[in-house]
């Protein structure tokens, strides 16, 4: 590496520092173009005035945020009272995403644990099986799920045939369908990090716990879970965050009544009916929420790390 340039002797540290700056440059450029600039663009747009047929007029205003939070009556001339429409959509998104996260955890943790405790040579096969459906595009998978859940679909046919239900159930266009869609879309993001954590787990700790009179349940709670916690938290974030902004599952499985944030934002940028500043503002509000969650996570990690040292 830069060792050759360090012939000067005492300045070796500085030489490496310089080299590091240059070597990291591509990363910084890529991150800036793909993350920083779009987010700043979005932030700027959220304070601009909307153009009638999509697009923006370069005039600073709080109108987008005002529309999100304030109900000003039919003619827009009343004092601000709380606008519940969008807050409700956000609230529904949060609990749908939260529920999908919990469901993924309940199903994903035992799955990950199961895979991690198989013999080493069959584990890759299990991981492969988990990921197979994800080789298919998310849109196709969600449409297929619509087919599965519809009134004359396989699931309803089975329920009626087996006598569990008397008549086909209304599943499509319900919160239930959205939930199934979210859970199905993001389950592997729960399984894989937990699997990685459990695979690294030293199982002689479980033996030691059993040796010291702990039951299986106590061992799981007091020894295994603390050890694999980083994997569990990572899995929860990886499911919760995309679920929160998802729009395919709510659009295709939930219908108009079961709107989520993702669909709301998507709609603002689609066709001529959109409102770009409003979509940008909703995105910024969503982004701030996600950032808050990630910061709580980072704080927790830092504290856990501090304890380990």
């Amino acid at each position: 590496m830069a060792g050759g340039a360090a012939g000067g002797g005492g300045t070796q540290g500085d030489t490496y520092k310089e080299a590091r700056t240059w070597l990291l440059l591509p990363t910084w450029v890529t991150l800036s173009i793909l993350v920083l600039v779009p987010v700043l663009l979005m932030l700027v747009y959220s304070f601009l005035t909307k153009e009638f047929r999509g697009g923006v007029i370069w005039e600073f205003t709080f109108a987008a945020y005002d529309q999100f939070f304030c109900d000003r009556g039919l003619f827009g001339d009343e004092p601000c009272s709380i606008e519940w429409t969008y807050l409700n959509i956000f609230w529904r998104s949060i609990w749908q995403a939260g529920l999908a996260t919990i469901l993924s955890l309940v199903i994903g943790f035992p799955t990950a644990y199961f895979i991690a405790t198989r013999p080493a040579r069959v584990r890759p096969l299990w991981v492969f099986l988990i990921t197979i459906p994800y080789w298919v595009n998310l849109l196709i998978r969600t449409v297929s799920m619509r087919f599965m859940l519809r009134e004359e679909g396989p699931l309803n046919n089975f329920l009626v045939w087996s006598g569990i239900a008397d008549a086909p159930l209304q599943m499509i266009n319900t919160n239930f369908a959205v939930q199934i869609g979210l859970f199905y879309s993001y389950l592997p993001f729960m399984v894989l990090p937990i699997y990685a954590a459990v695979e690294r787990y030293n199982f002689s700790l479980s033996e030691a716990a059993a040796d010291l009179y702990a039951s299986k349940w106590t061992t799981l709670r007091r020894i295994v879970l603390p050890a694999v916690r980083p994997g569990v938290i990572a899995g929860c974030i990886l499911v919760f965050v995309p679920s929160l902004g998802a729009f395919l599952a709510p659009d295709l499985l939930g219908g108009a009544k079961n709107f989520m944030i993702g669909s709301l934002i998507e709609e603002q940028f689609k066709g001529n009916a959109g409102n770009w500043p409003f979509g940008a503002a909703a995105s910024m509000i969503l982004l701030s929420m996600v950032l808050v969650i990630l910061m709580i996570y980072a704080r927790q990690q830092a504290r856990a790390g501090g304890e380990e040292r």
Binding site: S204, L205, A208, A209, A210, D211, L212, Y213, A214, E308
Partner: peptide, 20 residues
């Protein structure tokens, strides 16, 4: 009997101390 029902204790080769 399962290990947690046996009144014997083990010192493990790698110690297996609970890290947290």
């Amino acid at each position: 009997l399962p290990p947690n029902k046996r009144p014997v204790n083990t010192v493990f080769q790698n110690y297996a101390l609970f890290p947290h």
